[in-house]
Design a protein around this nucleic acid. Structure first.
Lengths: 261, 261
DNA sequence: CGATCGTTTGAAAGATATCAAGACTCGTGG
DNA sequence: CCACGAGTCTTGATATCTTTCAAACGATCG
């Protein structure tokens, strides 16, 4: 039995020894900022604060103009598209990720609502300080670009998933993907509420729930929040994972070939 | 009567006096590269080529590893998600935009298939040259970041549109948005094939076609490829545009407050 | 003219959402 | 300790939406 966090958060294995206690120390835990100079990180965190927020905390509302750049140090944050009283989960954000840096950079309103899912530590950096730092520090700019590129590719994958696959296929691939990851194990537990998985996959909880039952016919037996891998080959036959949809999408620092001068 | 290009391509009004004849001149027409030094643009285009491609030309296939960065100078390019024999339009790209720079920067496979829609002029820049230039020129890095940010926000808007609205609402808002733009006019023509609009909006051509008929009840009468604005208030009452979904998303160069030194 | 491609339409099946009710979990306060 | 309330999950019945398959229509182009 293995417990697995979803896709965007394989980095769940992190849990640094000691949780950082200052904004500066928090940023030091972010892998893709490694190439950024200490001075820039100092400048960035000069007026920053490190907050611990309980689950359910609203971080910002759709249409708000960003005052801070938020960086998730630990825990997780859900980003919802909102329309009237309906919400749909657009992205789940985990340790080391920024919350909608595009809106902060462009001084544009947030397109999504952010709410804490698992108790989270967040670094809050003044929006203007962030913009200035990106504008003046090339290494930071490169790092943010890599971060933004990863976010873009995740969105494209999600769009393909929703537009090209049926509800059952989306659910099946979601589970099969986790199954392959934990594979020597015979079962795993969901770490995400079902209503959130359903929303992320673009369907109602009821449809998701029903699909769950039917999926037992394809080698994946669902029992509460644990999934038993009964017949992985049957699952593979029915649900074909596509790396261009289901593959991971980590932040990759820009690599340039050695200059052959 | 007004002819209008869609959303991503309001920049249709451009058509520079003389089409550029060299890669270097072509990049000079791209607005968001204005802050980039001439030397960098020279370096970028040293081994670049400027191609004119007829409609239907395949530019690259899903899963390919990028060899070039493509920049659209004129015309337009469709980006499809592909699964077996199914295609879905994920993004339409017009003059001044880059084709999936995220894949090029990260040396990752393309997630989409690119095909020329309207005859296009394209600058082809060696992928490695592009990466090196971004890594060494801060202004270019900033410009690409702004470009990528705009792309990300477009994807989020599209995801909200598809997950939060019904098929009829998506179609209605699509038309109403154009209607508002051309407003003193009483009608307008579609510049995009209906099958492409349908695909972009996440439905089949048949569903789209049927929805078209029903939409006449809400003040927008469809006749072939021209839409008559019969009753704009009825349309507004039924279809509520949301700037956080339907608003434009142009590339914005990073603006930093004046340094008060 | 015939071929191709995009569009429209019909009829039927299928997928998905909605509404409503019950089961279950979990934390709180009596 | 138990009962309660809130939230989640499941299940059933039903309605709606959407797709599928098929055919016909209309343009465009050699």
């Amino acid at each position: 039995m293995v417990t697995e966090r979803l896709d965007n958060m394989q980095s769940r294995v992190d849990t640094p020894q000691q949780p950082p206690t200052t904004p500066r120390a928090a940023l030091a835990t972010v892998a893709w900022l490694r190439a950024v100079s200490g001075e820039t990180l100092d400048r960035l965190t000069e007026f920053a604060v490190l907050h611990r927020m309980p689950p359910g905390s609203m971080l910002f509302e759709q249409a708000e103009t960003p005052a801070f750049l938020l960086c998730v140090v630990s825990g997780s944050v859900e980003l919802f598209g909102v329309r009237g009283s309906d919400e749909t989960l657009i992205e789940l954000v985990g340790p080391g990720d920024l919350l909608l840096p595009a809106a902060v950079l462009n001084r544009q309103p947030y397109l999504l609502r952010a709410r804490v899912l698992d108790e989270a530590q967040l670094v809050m950096i003044q929006a203007e300080a962030f913009r200035r730092a990106v504008a003046s520090d090339h290494a930071l700019c490169l790092a943010v670009l890599a971060c933004e590129a990863a976010h873009f590719r995740r969105q494209v994958k999600s769009a393909k998933n929703i537009k090209l696959r049926s509800a059952e296929e989306r659910v099946g691939c979601y589970f099969l993907k986790i199954a392959e990851q934990v594979l020597p194990a015979a079962s795993f537990k969901l770490t995400l509420e079902k209503r959130l998985i359903a929303s992320q996959l673009g369907m109602t909880r009821e449809t998701f729930s029903r699909t769950l039952a039917g999926i037992g016919q394809h080698g994946l037996q669902v029992e509460g929040d644990t999934i038993h891998i009964i017949n992985i080959d049957a699952a593979r036959a029915r649900f074909q994972l596509d790396p261009l949809i289901d593959g991971p999408e980590a932040v990759q620092p820009l690599a340039v070939e050695a200059t052959t001068t």
